Simulated assay, not measured.
Amino acid sequence: MGNLKNALIALTVPLPSIAFYLTFLHHYSSSDVSSLNPFWVWCSNHPILLANLLFTINVDFLFWVIGLAQNTNWMIDLYWTVIPVMLVHYYASHPFAQFNVWRSRVVILLTWVWSIRLTHSYFRRENWHWGAREDWRFSDMRKQYGKQWWWISFFAVYVSQQIFLIGICLPMYAIHRSEKPLNVYDFVATVVCVAGIVFAYFADTQLQEFVVRNKKLKELGEPTVTTLDKGLWRYSRHPNYFGEQLWWWGLVIFGWSLGYGWTFVGSLINSLCLAYVTVLVEQRMLKQAHRAEDYRRYMKTTSVWIPWFKISSGGRKDKNA
């Protein structure tokens, strides 16, 4: 019953923003611009500010209230896979948009593929349940801040996500503000984006198989494998993070090639944040007594993000490892 309730909440929660935006488009298309309500004029002239306004009302406040009612902030994790799709269609359909049709179609298609990949990974990890748990970082902060968490969560969970999501999707705005013809950089950006999606998919799949295999071993009363160091994880301690970063920086190449180099700022902030998260994840691994020693060895011989050859105990590359 809880699974169905969470599914209904997740599917209906973006409807206010969608309804508002469709109303705005209707008024804009059916009225003379000179006779538009001043608010509709503002909406048409400030696409990024309007995106932030909708995010503040529909995500920051509404998701926050739902999170307080349910005592869990699970939904923002799921919507990381949805909001970029909504944003790319928003920028493409906004009255202020002007763009090369083929570049727009490529980026929209890539964003959908990225989203489907990440959504599948999310539900696979959660055993196909809606809202089974919240991100462990939020759970840790809940314990840390105690009774103050109810208001701190508004900023730590939701406002922070607004900064990240609006920021990393800025190249989508740039793509729909330029009619420049396709060029070699579009090809490079597309290759980087596809490589990121594929890399992250295989990394997440190998991690999921590792978790499932260990679960079966535990049920059989047999020793589990403490560290995943096979496949892509042989060459990188966080290949899933690396793949995700390739995707976002691939979008930056699109924006940069169109003269919107400043759109890199969102991906830079996201990468810096992910670097911090990487430290937290590894500290968490080292706190687990049964795997700490093995993971320390793994850290000494394996690259953090960028896939590379194993490092031998003598500090040299080991191409056969």
Rank of each mutant, 00 (worst) to 15 (best):
A7G: 13
V13H: 02
L15M: 14
P16T: 05
L22Y: 06
T23I: 07
Y28I: 12
S30H: 10
P38K: 04
C43Q: 04
H46F: 08
I48A: 10
L49M: 10
L53G: 11
F55R: 00
T56V: 14
I57C: 14
V65K: 11
L68K: 10
Q70T: 14
D77V: 01
Y79S: 11
Y79V: 11
W80Y: 13
I83C: 00
L87I: 08
Y90G: 02
S93D: 07
H94T: 01
P95C: 00
Q98D: 11
V101C: 05
L109H: 08
R117Y: 05
F123P: 15
W136Q: 14
R142K: 11
K143L: 13
Q144D: 14
W150P: 03
S153W: 00
A156E: 08
S160Q: 12
Q162C: 08
L165F: 03
P171C: 04
H176V: 11
S178A: 06
V194C: 07
F199A: 00
Y201I: 09
F202N: 01
F202S: 02
E209Q: 10
N214V: 07
K216M: 01
K218V: 02
L220W: 05
D229I: 10
K230Q: 15
R237T: 05
Y241N: 12
V252W: 15
G266R: 04
L268A: 14
C273Y: 15
V281N: 10
Q283I: 00
Q283F: 04
L286E: 08
A292H: 04
E293S: 11
Y295F: 06
M299P: 02
S303R: 12
W305F: 15
K317V: 06
K319A: 11
